[in-house]
């Protein structure tokens, strides 16, 4: 079947299979930031925004996003024009292997869109569904708090 969706601000009309996951669709469309860590909804590496809310793309069927707005990490910024959250992750040393990073940034984006002054505990709560095996989470929490500070200071676009 073919569906309309809005992907990173652009209208797309794409062929999808009924049983296909959103994760598979997005990677097929070149959104390689969407990572497969488990395919069972446990690791959070494939987190994207669906109408602004963080979802695990492996647990959503592609046809379910018909007519909806999907944002992946590629939609936030790129190397030449990074989003402040992406900058903050580098600045704080929150990127080790970088495989969980896209999902972490997407949940952080959702958190900061609701609350630009979270406590460290609120940050830990927000990212608790996203597993990282490299960092011990310390610098990821730092990064999100730093990005929040920049947001409060009006440094976000």
């Amino acid at each position: 079947m073919k569906i309309y969706l809005e992907l990173n601000g652009k209208q797309r009309y794409e062929e999808v299979a009924p049983g296909e996951s959103l994760l598979s669709l997005l990677r097929r469309l070149g959104m390689k930031s969407v990572k497969q860590g488990c395919a069972t909804g446990d690791c959070g590496a494939c987190t994207v925004l669906l109408d602004g809310r963080a979802v695990r793309a492996c647990t959503v069927f592609a046809p379910q996003v018909r007519g909806r707005r999907v944002t992946t990490l590629e939609g936030l910024g790129d190397v030449d024009d990074p989003h402040p959250l992406q900058e903050a992750f580098v600045e704080a040393g929150a990127v080790q292997c970088g495989f969980c990073t896209p999902g972490m940034i997407m949940v952080a984006y959702e958190l900061l869109s609701r609350n630009d002054n979270p406590t460290p505990e609120e940050v830990r709560e927000a990212i608790s569904g996203n597993l990282c095996r490299c960092t011990g989470y310390v610098k990821i929490v730092d990064a999100i708090l730093l990005a929040a500070k920049w947001k409060r200071e009006g440094k976000w676009r």
């Binding site: 959104m31 390689k32 930031s33 990572k35 992946t72 990490l73 590629e74 936030l76 910024g77 790129d78 190397v79 990074p82 992406q86 900058e87 992750f89 580098v90 600045e91 040393g93 990127v95 970088g98 495989f99 990073t101 896209p102 940034i105």
Partner: peptide, 16 residues
């Protein structure tokens, strides 16, 4: 210093 691959990882470049 900035991790040399930090920003390309944080922006989701196809590096894996």
């Amino acid at each position: 210093v900035r991790k040399v691959d930090g920003l390309s990882l944080a922006t989701g470049r196809p590096k894996f």
